[in-house]
Design a protein around this nucleic acid. Structure first.
Length: 659
RNA sequence: GCGCCCAUAGCUCAGCUGGAUAGAGCAACGGACUUCUAAUCCGUAGGUCGCAGGUUCGAAUCCUGCUGGGCGUACCA
């Protein structure tokens, strides 16, 4: 049961007599959870605009609406307050009966949506040639959570991992393998060696790129310095506005000069770092053309060159296994994993099709699609004949429509690609998918602790696996310390502690990510991520474990408890508050799906767990005043535990019975 | 230059479609374990919601300008 939906239902008819249908929807949206407990449980704010519109006093309008409304069974109180707010208090009996229903419902009171849709979720999509690092986690975790939530609500979901298994990075690995491989190391640990080769080639390419840019960068500095000098000599005109403009131009020029100098310094660093390393330097000098050569390897792979194709076929499964290992420990699953290579053969057809429709045309040797709203075109074929990820993305949409006839496609990708997606959606809608709704579920950049964009420094990137290991290690420390300090002595053996640490550590990392509004940038901090108090998964897991602990101590037979028809009664205000929050679960899920924001669910779960903690302090369960209250509270505990576990499961987070 | 995004407590962040006195967590301070797990709870303190205008009965939220930051911007993904 969704209380909010039910309230809107009740108000709908009455409001219809006050205004038209489209307007009513808008007015109904002004019914929402109360901002403050003093105002009851829900509040309706539509009397103010309605009064304005009708030229009546809002309070009179509110009164008139309430007179024509049958709310007695749901609300114990419907009060007009302030300028015309309608404050609604849900009545005790109704909450009880709804909670009783939820308690025997496998879906804990959440119904499936009407009008289920077919969603395709495109998330995670790592580059298989590079080890996964902290930057990959957001897409993976947010996408996984949205997939689970949509599915639970009754939609059909196809989770697709659009792997980067065909791009330039493979050319780099192939080049590295042909020139620098350490056979012994490769035989011992293939992926590790491949990843070393990738980083090595990347570094050498960077070296040459930087080195070749030194001159032009110096020129730019000279030019900017000249500009600063020129601006400094401009005499004040006496005109305030004009002088302000001048001052601004000068400060901007100085800024740019500083930037240019900084860029030069970092170029020089890159160059020096290689040249100071004798071995690296000698490799660099032996491969001056490495950037072009690596691209050539990619081109040859795409053209079907036998050697390169064979190498690719040898590398790919190994890279995928490596990635799979991370997914298994995170319990991430996909329905399909069609990488970029899967679409390779469709690309010429995509370009042809777009040309024939006149959407694509040649410009500067490349096949381009020009769109009115954008300055730069979407390029679908390079002047050297190679295809780009835009081409692949278009082919992917084509395939997805044919294969699944999707209603909606969600791309969980960081915000830097928003322009790409805007173009992609515009082209797809004009070309082969006029009706499908496509959304870029963008999220913020991962920042380091100084607030700068988190960048993987070549050589010592924070691998995702290392991060997960660290989280589990820290969790184990806390689990052990906590268990050792239990009043009755330790309760957990080592394997159990290890398992608990595993659940808590992985949960902490996922939750840290999911609990932020996805559009915000994200400050990555080991300490913050692994803090196991406050608004963290651990707090919810702890609440769950406390419920189970009550059952253990009380020797409660859970299946018998669930089978008995003893009603839940809400005598204490902490019980009422807890029950009310349980009934809001479906509202929370609706909020998640509404704008694809899992943090709506983490916020809800935190509220729920807080209410439970408060209930736990104030309401003894096993030592309740009588058997009726005890049974009622046991059932309330059970339901709370189930909602917490269920909510966490939609975030991809597990629970344990004991902590 | 153009485009997109952001600015909320000391720190990290919520704040849904405009609603009443802007909320959490962490850190700080004061209380609560003979008790169903203190990984907890109760309380105190902490704010010019970047600045200036505008729209509105009502603005952190919408509009305009400004300041400061991030990102993107023709053949990488």
């Amino acid at each position: 049961m969704n209380i909010l939906a039910e309230l809107k239902n009740r108000f709908h008819e009455v409001l219809m007599s006050f205004s038209g249908n489209t307007e009513v929807q808008h007015l109904l949206d002004m019914i929402k959870p109360a901002q403050d407990a003093r105002f009851g449980d829900y509040q309706a704010n539509f009397a103010m605009p309605l009064g304005k519109q009708m030229g009546k006093a809002p309070r009179d309008v509110a009164a008139e609406i309430l007179e024509n409304l049958q709310l007695d069974d749901i609300c114990s109180q419907a009060e007009i307050a302030g300028p015309g707010f309608i404050n609604l208090t849900i009545c005790q009996d109704w909450i009880s009966s709804q909670v009783n229903e939820a308690a025997v419902d496998p879906r804990v009171g959440v119904s499936t949506v009407e009008g289920a849709q077919t969603y395709i979720l495109d998330y995670s999509s790592p580059n298989v040639a590079k080890p996964m690092h902290v930057g990959h986690i957001r897409s993976t975790v947010i996408g996984d959570s949205l997939a689970r939530t949509l599915r639970f609500l009754g939609h059909q979901v196809i989770a697709d991992n659009h792997l980067g298994d065909w791009g330039t990075q493979f050319g780099m690995i192939i080049y590295g393998f042909k020139n620098f491989v350490d056979q012994a190391a490769y035989e011992q640990h293939e992926v590790q060696e491949l990843s070393r080769l990738y980083r090595l080639v990347n570094r050498l390419i960077d070296y040459w790129k930087s080195k070749n840019r030194l001159m032009s960068q110096q020129d730019e500095i000279d030019r900017r310095a000249g500009e600063v000098e020129r601006l400094e000599q401009v005499e004040p005109t006496g005109d305030k506005k004009e002088d302000k403009k001048q001052a601004k131009a000068l400060s901007r020029a100085k800024d740019q000069l500083g930037q240019a100098r900084k860029t030069l310094a970092s170029l020089m660093d890159t160059v020096a770092a290689v040249e100071e390393d004798e071995q690296l330097n000698s490799l660099a000098q032996q491969h001056p053309d490495i950037a072009r050569s690596a691209l050539l390897e990619t081109a040859q792979l795409h053209e079907g060159d036998e050697t390169n194709r064979k190498l690719w076929e040898e590398f790919l499964p190994k890279c995928r296994e490596d990635i799979q290992r991370v997914y298994s420990r995170l319990h991430i699953e996909f329905d399909v994993e069609y990488g970029e290579s899967f679409y390779h053969e469709m690309l010429p057809g995509v370009v042809d099709g777009l040309q024939q429709l006149g959407l694509a045309s040649e410009s500067e040797g490349a096949q381009c699609i020009f769109l009115d709203e954008f300055d730069t075109p979407m390029i679908i074929q390079k002047s050297d004949g190679a295809y780009l990820y835009a081409t692949t993305d278009l082919a992917t949409i084509e395939y997805r429509m044919k294969q699944w006839n999707a209603d909606e496609i969600l791309y969980v990708v960081d915000h830097r690609q928003s322009e790409h997606f805007q173009k992609l959606f515009a082209v797809a809608n004009a070309w082969n998918a006029p009706d499908v709704k496509m959304h870029h579920i963008s999220f913020g950049t991962v920042l380091d602790e100084t607030g700068r964009p988190y960048k993987t420094r070549s050589g010592d990137a924070v691998g995702l696996e290392g991060l997960l290991d660290e989280a589990v290690r820290k969790a184990l420390e806390v689990v052990s310390a906590n268990d050792d300090n239990k009043p009755g002595g330790p309760e957990l053996d080592d394997p159990t502690r290890q398992h608990i640490a595993d659940v808590i550590g992985h949960g902490a990392i996922k939750y840290a990510d999911l609990s932020h509004n996805r559009t915000s940038d994200y400050v990555f901090s080991y300490d913050k991520m692994m803090a196991l108090e406050g608004n963290t998964a651990t707090y919810m897991q702890y609440s769950y474990a406390r419920v189970q602990s009550i059952f253990r101590k009380g020797d409660v037979d859970i299946s018998a408890l669930r089978a008995n028809d003893q009603d839940i009664v809400l005598g204490h205000k902490a019980e009422r508050a807890l029950a009310m929050m349980i009934l809001r679960y479906s509202e929370a899920l609706e909020n998640v799906v509404d704008d694809y924001r899992p943090n709506q669910l983490t916020n809800y779960l935190f509220d729920l767990a807080k209410r439970f903690s408060s209930f736990f302090e104030q309401c003894p369960v096993l030592k309740a005043e009588d058997e009726l209250v005890k049974q009622s509270r046991l059932r309330l505990c059970d339901l709370t535990g189930r909602v917490i576990a269920h909510g966490l499961s939609l975030l991809g987070i597990r629970v344990v019975d004991q902590m």
